[in-house]
Amino acid sequence: MDADLDALIRRADAADPVAAELLFATLYRELHRIAAAHLRRDGAALSLRTTTLLHEAYLHIVGGDAPAFSERGRFLAYASRAMRRLVIDYARRGRAQKRDRRAEVTLTGDEQPSAEAARTAAELERLDDALEELATLEPALAELVNLHFFSGLTFAEIAALRGVSERTVQRDWRKARLLLARTVLDEA
């Protein structure tokens, strides 16, 4: 099954529109779960809906300059990163609305941004900056954070995707958390 999925991902990367749609349909439940996890963790104060986030991420992946994906784990990590960026952008727009109601651009309607949403946006921006810095230092660790923290995959699932032991993933997780904590504390 994973070999078939990996082949489908490669076909979708080769600009095969039928393969791209089939890939989206095949991974829809998993992508929906990832979107829900993002909103539960990062966007609770936002009025963004799970399905909206999922479909916006899909449009970003299909319509953008997405890199080639050779396997399921890399595709899911990229999709998770795209969703995280969309949540951050949505939160930023909410903050901009709060400052200047004339610049009203939203994905879901005319809801008033809350103080909690503004605080969430600032925290998300700090975390995103830290993750971008981690990605430049240790891309594999940044991908691990995306898969575990943002996508909600377990260490066992990540270990299976990467072909390593669960203990190796746990060790990498501790290292990623330490590097992220150091980066966030340096920014504060």
Rank of each mutant, 00 (worst) to 15 (best):
E138D: 14
F150A: 14
G152S: 09
Q170L: 13
A140E: 15
V145T: 10
S165G: 15
V169L: 01
A142Y: 02
R162H: 09
E157Q: 15
S165A: 12
V164G: 12
L147M: 06
L144C: 10
L147C: 07
S151L: 01
R162N: 04
F150Q: 10
E138C: 07
N146R: 06
G163L: 01
R167H: 11
A156R: 10
Q170I: 14
L161G: 08
F150K: 10
N146A: 11
R167W: 05
P139H: 09
L147S: 06
A140V: 13
L161W: 04
R167P: 00
V145Q: 06
V164K: 09
L141Q: 08
I158V: 15
S151P: 00
T168E: 14
S165W: 03
V164N: 06
P139R: 05
V164S: 10
S165T: 15
H148G: 11
V164Y: 02
R171Q: 11
R171K: 11
I158Q: 01
P139L: 08
V169Q: 00
F155I: 01
A160M: 02
E166M: 10
H148W: 05
R171G: 02
E166L: 03
R171T: 15
I158A: 08
V169T: 02
G152C: 07
A142P: 02
T168C: 07
V145H: 03
A142D: 06
L144H: 08
E166T: 15
T154L: 01
R171Y: 08
T168S: 15
D172I: 01
T168G: 05
A160N: 08
R167G: 13
T154H: 02
R171I: 09
R167M: 08
R167D: 13
V169P: 00
P139Q: 10
E143S: 12
A140P: 03
A160K: 07
H148C: 02
G163C: 06
E138Y: 08
N146W: 02
E143G: 08
L153Q: 15
H148I: 12
A140F: 03
T154V: 03
L141E: 04
S151K: 02
D172L: 05
E143N: 06
